[in-house]
């Protein structure tokens, strides 16, 4: 049996230094390289205990988005014991994107071309902002949604077998596939962005109910504009109606009604 491993994380001051180095442009070139050795003195052993070594995430260069679902499941299975507090710690995710899953991060959320292709200051600034968005976290859920690795874990965590986490509300949705709603969420970039980018997405009951609707209405789910309008309308309704307090049947009926009005 493999000896349990303590997940390594960066020290907080190291994360801040790395962020400053990138922001200044000093480390920009390193984000084109696969090698990024972490020095032991920069790391801390965390309280996260792992039974196996980190898995390899798929990084097909031709269509990296297509591997999101498999990668989310692989990652979540490996880090199933994380709680929400641990899973919102920037030190963990910055370490994982820069070191443990660097190859994946470079393919999926890296920069195109080479460092020399960045001709002027404007291009460099744009590249830096892109990297800050996908390789670093400041601590809010917007950063977690956009971070190369954190987004995969959270996509799976927020959608894994809701009938187990909230049986009273979602008992009737029981499915053989515990990742059914993860698959719906990551089936297109539009669903992920439009559903999770809205404040509504923070409510697990609203999130799963919307995904349940989208899973059953595939034509609707293929339209970015329809999904965007649905979430916008639900947000607007939330101003005067606490839809989070509704029972499942009423919430589903409301989503269907709003969607019907869009079509």
């Amino acid at each position: 049996m493999t000896k349990p491993l303590a997940q390594k994380i960066y020290r907080r001051d190291v994360v801040e230094h790395m962020r400053n180095e990138l922001r200044s442009g000093a480390s920009l070139e390193s984000y084109f390289k696969e090698s990024f050795p972490a020095k032991e003195k920069e790391l801390l052993p965390s309280t996260i205990v792992l039974q196996t070594k980190a898995p390899v995430l798929k990084a097909p260069k031709s269509d990296p988005v297509s591997a999101d679902i498999d990668n989310a499941i692989t990652l979540y299975e490996h880090y199933r014991n994380l709680d929400e507090t641990q899973a919102s710690d920037p030190r963990l995710w910055v370490y994982l994107s820069h070191v443990e899953f660097r190859k994946y991060s470079l393919v999926r959320w890296g920069l195109d071309g080479t460092y020399k292709d960045l001709k002027d200051a404007a291009e460099k600034t744009k590249a830096i902002n892109y990297l800050l968005e996908h390789w670093f976290i400041s601590g809010n859920d917007r950063d977690l949604r956009r971070h190369a690795i954190a987004r995969l874990w959270w996509a799976a965590h927020l959608t894994y077998a809701p009938w187990e986490s909230d049986p009273e509300f979602f008992g009737d949705l029981k499915n053989k596939d515990p990742y059914y709603y993860t698959r719906v969420l990551l089936s297109t970039q539009d669903i992920y962005q439009q559903v999770l980018e809205r404040a509504m997405g923070r409510s697990n009951r609203v999130l799963i109910s919307v995904l349940d609707f989208l899973g059953k209405n595939k034509k609707f789910a293929q339209s970015r504009e329809s999904i965007r309008t649905l979430m916008k309308e639900l947000n607007l309704a939330y101003g005067t109606k606490k839809i989070i307090t509704l029972d499942r049947a009423s919430l589903s009926a409301l989503i269907e009604k709003v969607a019907a009005d869009i079509n």
Partner: peptide
């Protein structure tokens, strides 16, 4: 009708109502 406390934490995707 009921009293509602709606709790939201942006760091952990937490949004829940208590009634």
């Amino acid at each position: 009708a009921s009293f509602i406390a709606e709790v939201e934490c942006r760091s952990t995707f937490f949004r829940k109502s208590f009634s």
